[in-house]
């Protein structure tokens, strides 16, 4: 097989299995098909992660390499958030309060791991030669999005919520910490990534973020427009005739038999 065919079979096909499997499992009503969809998505994910070994010559396989590197800290952050949410005042599925400390520890460890990947020895180096270029895209976009979104959530809690100053302050702190991390990236050289490289990729990620926002908004607008045009073309639904006296009497009998009930003890 030539290089392109290899990339299609061992990278792009498994990558397409992930959304297809997820879509299949969400849209199916039977257990067998739902499980098949999940299996396909997991299989696709594993094959993408091992793509640096199956198609080492393809530049696309550095996405698999990146996935392998970020799966650890990302899982820690997600587990940490889960523990923090459900160890608080939730009506269902409450975890013991001691899990809050574990959650905080997981969050701190996950964040530290990401920082070490940027400034320390844990940087994803592809093929033993150079920094994985997709890491240079992932980290600035990730931290920029956290920074902007936590700022939005902080303000939205003040606008929408009532007496949510403390929670708004927490989100503001998240935004400030991410701003500090970005400033550190722009000024401090890491072991493998210089501040100049980070600066270049950071400003490109700002353009990227706005591009994605515009592109996604445009596609949602087109989707809404297509549905609107179709719904307008089908016209008013046929109205049903009013109920007959017999139907009304039958309905009132049913209602009378089902309302009321015993006194609560």
């Amino acid at each position: 097989m030539d290089e392109m065919m290899n990339a299609i079979v061992f990278f792009w096909f498994p990558l397409s299995l992930i959304p297809l499997g997820a879509w299949f499992s969400l849209s199916s009503k039977t257990n067998l098909r739902t499980n098949f969809g999940r299996f396909a998505a997991v299989l696709g994910f594993i094959l993408v992660c091992i793509s640096p070994w199956t198609v080492p010559t393809s530049p696309s396989s550095s996405i698999g390499h990146l996935l392998g590197f970020i799966i650890g800290p990302s899982s820690l952050l997600l587990i940490g958030i889960y523990l923090l949410i459900f160890s608080g005042n939730v009506p269902v599925g409450k975890l013991p309060s001691s899990d809050r400390k574990l959650g905080t520890f997981c969050m701190a460890l996950g964040s530290l791991w990401f920082c070490l990947m940027q400034w320390g020895e844990f940087t994803p180096i592809y093929d033993g030669r150079e920094v994985n270029r997709f890491w240079l895209i992932f980290f600035p976009t990730f931290i920029l999005m956290i920074c902007c979104l936590s700022s939005v959530l902080s303000i939205s809690m003040l606008i929408i919520g009532e007496e949510r100053q403390t929670e708004s302050m927490v989100m503001r702190m998240v935004s400030i910490v991410s701003i500090i991390l970005i400033i550190c990236g722009l000024t401090i050289d890491g072991k493998n990534i210089s501040s100049e490289t980070f600066t270049t990729y950071f400003w490109l990620s700002v353009s990227d973020l706005f591009g994605i926002l515009v592109g996604v908004s445009l596609s949602i607008f087109i989707f809404g427009f297509v549905i609107y045009v179709y719904e307008r073309s089908i016209g008013e639904p046929n109205s049903v005739p009013p109920p007959t006296p017999e139907e009304l009497s039958q309905a009132s009998q049913k209602i009378a038999a089902n309302i009321g009930g015993a006194e609560s003890e």
Partner: peptide, 28 residues
């Protein structure tokens, strides 16, 4: 590839931010 990686970064950041907000709300 670039857009897939950016989508991944944005999705992870969104989950973390919304999760942090809920964590702040439930721990109050």
């Amino acid at each position: 590839g670039h857009t897939i990686v950016s989508f991944l970064a944005i999705s992870l950041a969104m989950v973390l931010c919304v999760g942090s907000m809920f964590a702040a709300l439930t721990n109050g």
